[in-house]
Every structure is written in structure tokens, then in C-alpha cells.
């Protein structure tokens, strides 16, 4: 499985596809970025590995000549066995996959039926949102 992943990486890295397309005479460059997810692979007895490649595709059109180049700009390893110190570093590579927002207070949402949070003691619960919502809703 490992061989297969490395093969896929090498294949993408060297992929240059010159194609000829008639029509326009002016120079034009189109750049797009895509993510390619590899299959989850078993790494012996250590668990699973998954690799995501971030590929930048540049299409350069000059007159009738069109040239496409693809470059791997990042390699992410979102799933990786967690048995070594090195894996902690590799874990950080997965961070770009997460959505990143800013902590806010949400508007009052009348649909809320339960309130979750870090373990509530009874003292805290007595004045907690959950108690208030239960009173308000009479579920």
C-alpha cells in the first residue's frame, strides 16, 4: 500500500501535459488548486494512513499552444498512526483541513433542547442554561 501511495505522488509530481488547442492568439494563464485524497492504507500493525495532496494546476495558453503543469504544493497526512513523537508533528499537518472560525456567542436559538458542556456540577446546573431551557420548553 505504501508503494502505491508513493507511486501516486511521483506520478502527479512529474505530470506535464502539453496539448495543442487552436483559436486565441493572446497569452493567458489560469491557476487552480485542488485537493486529491488517497485511499486509506493499512500501515502494517500501526493503523491507517491517509494522504491528501494539494495540487496547483497552471494552464498557460499562448496563441494556439496550451501547456498544463501540475505542482504539488502541500502534502497533508490527516490520518497517521500516533505511536511516535514524529507523529505529533505529522498531526499538525492535518490542521489546514479544519474549518477555522472565531469564537462568538450565538443568537438565542429557540430550537435548543439540550445544553452540552464540560461536566456540570449540580451547583452550576441549578443556574445553568439546561435548567432554564427545560423550564421554558417543558419537553
Amino acid at each position: 500500500m505504501r508503494k502505491r501511495l508513493i507511486g501516486a505522488v511521483a506520478g502527479l509530481a512529474t505530470l506535464v501535459l502539453p496539448t495543442v488547442n487552436a483559436v486565441a492568439a493572446t497569452a493567458k494563464t489560469i491557476v487552480t488548486t485542488k485537493r486529491v485524497t488517497g485511499p486509506q492504507a493499512v500501515a502494517d500493525r500501526w493503523g491507517y494512513v491517509e494522504v491528501i495532496l494539494v495540487v496547483k494546476k497552471t494552464t498557460r495558453i499562448v496563441g494556439t499552444h496550451k501547456k498544463v503543469t501540475r505542482k504539488i504544493t502541500n502534502v497533508l497526512v490527516p490520518i497517521y498512526p500516533n505511536h511516535t513523537d514524529r507523529s505529533v508533528f505529522i498531526n499538525q499537518q492535518a490542521v489546514p483541513l479544519l474549518t477555522n472560525e472565531v469564537l462568538t456567542m450565538t443568537q438565542f436559538n429557540p430550537n435548543i433542547e439540550f445544553v452540552g458542556g464540560a461536566t456540570a456540577t449540580s451547583g452550576a446546573f441549578a443556574q445553568s442554561l439546561q435548567a432554564a431551557i427545560l423550564q421554558a420548553k417543558k419537553i
Binding site: L103, N111, I112, F114, G116, G117, T119, I133
Partner: peptide
């Protein structure tokens, strides 16, 4: 005590970690 398990569709507020009387996210 703040950890929840549901069957069917329910709306859950996650308490704001700093403002305890507020909701930070709705699940």
C-alpha cells in the same frame, strides 16, 4: 452533566467556554 446522547433529531447548544450563560455553537 453536559454530555449528551440522542436518538432521533435534536438541537443541542454547546456552552460558551468563557461566558457560561451563553451558547458558542449549535449542533
Amino acid at each position: 452533566g453536559g454530555d449528551i446522547r440522542t436518538r432521533g433529531r435534536w438541537t443541542i447548544g454547546i456552552q460558551h467556554p468563557l461566558e457560561r450563560q451563553e451558547i458558542a455553537q449549535v449542533v
